[in-house]
Amino acid sequence: MDLYQHFRPEEQPFIDQVIDWRHQVERQYIPVISDFLNPREQLIFQSIIGQEDNLTLSFYGGYERAERKRAILAPFYETIEHEDYKLSILQGTYASKFVSLSHRDLLGTMMSLGLQRKKLGDLIVLDGEFQIICDQDLALYLKMNVEKIKNTRINLTEVDEHTVLNPDHHWQEKEGTVSSTRLDVMIKEIYQISRQKAQTFIEKEAVKVNHRIVNHSSYHLQSGDLISLKSYGRSKVVAILGETRKSKIRIKTAKLK
């Protein structure tokens, strides 16, 4: 199928799922709701559905700047409200005077319960409090089973979307040119380190793309990809802007400050 040529081989199962959802809505005229999608998956979903007049596609993750969002694909005449996404927002507090919790600590606790990442939205951690955005059906399970994080006792309560914590995320965008969209080349450009150092990080499995470890330098990045480099922070590929007259590739990237 020609559609697959525009995406990575490992993205084919998700593409098939999107196509199946489209056919389901077109046949049954009933909206479908996805699990939480990362920005790359959202971009794929949008590009496949495109501007189809008979369908409407929308995303929501609990607050305006959410990174991970659920999608609803519906007949064009449907009106989608926030409650249709079936999200729950759980808030927890802890004694920040005695312990420091990070996003990694919170995610590690969730994964230790055997949960799938796609059932969880953004995890927001600030001093003394945190929030978990999740599937509505998962909220009760979490309230019953998450009592400690990093040996610190916590209590989870459900709150509404108007009380979502506002993480102070500032993405600093930059445009530039690269010789290739290979992972080592892009990391060199984004983090301003040598290509050899970038390759060493990749080989040591210190690099994640879309939350998955990638350990080969020849992996090509695409628009919407999220990158995490251990000890250097997070970044993303905002857009691949095309080629210059000298056959360089113009890119727009952003780094989390």
Rank of each mutant, 00 (worst) to 15 (best):
D225N: 15
I124R: 01
E129F: 02
K248I: 03
F7H: 12
G224A: 07
V207M: 04
Q12Y: 12
D16C: 07
I15R: 02
F14V: 10
I193L: 12
V146Y: 00
Q24R: 07
S58V: 05
L113F: 09
S47M: 12
N215C: 08
I48N: 09
F130E: 06
Y77M: 04
I15L: 15
S217Y: 10
S112K: 06
L156M: 05
N145Q: 07
P39A: 08
E205F: 01
D2Y: 08
K119H: 03
K246L: 11
M1R: 02
L106C: 15
N151R: 12
Q199C: 04
L37E: 13
S88W: 12
G61S: 03
T244F: 06
V146R: 02
K97M: 08
R195H: 05
R40T: 13
K246Q: 15
E11V: 03
K197Y: 09
Y77D: 14
L138K: 04
H6Y: 15
Y63F: 15
R153S: 14
L3P: 01
I89C: 13
S218P: 00
E67L: 01
G233Y: 05
D225H: 02
Y141R: 01
L126Y: 00
E205G: 06
H162L: 10
S231C: 01
Q172H: 12
V214T: 06
C134V: 05
N210T: 12
Q192K: 15
L87F: 09
T152H: 05
R40F: 08
D184V: 02
T181E: 12
K150Y: 06
I133L: 12
H23S: 15
F130N: 04
M110L: 15
Q24F: 14
K246G: 14
K204F: 07
E189W: 00
Y141H: 07
Y141S: 07
L106E: 06
E41Y: 03
Y191T: 08
I44E: 13
Q51T: 13
I89H: 07
S100W: 02
L241C: 14
K148A: 08
E10C: 10
Q136V: 07
D127C: 01
Q91D: 04
Y141G: 00
S223W: 01
K257S: 11
R40Q: 12
S58P: 07
D127Q: 10
S228D: 09
V178K: 05
I133M: 04
M186T: 04
F7A: 09
E67F: 00
L123N: 03
L241H: 04
R27D: 15
T109L: 04
G128Y: 01
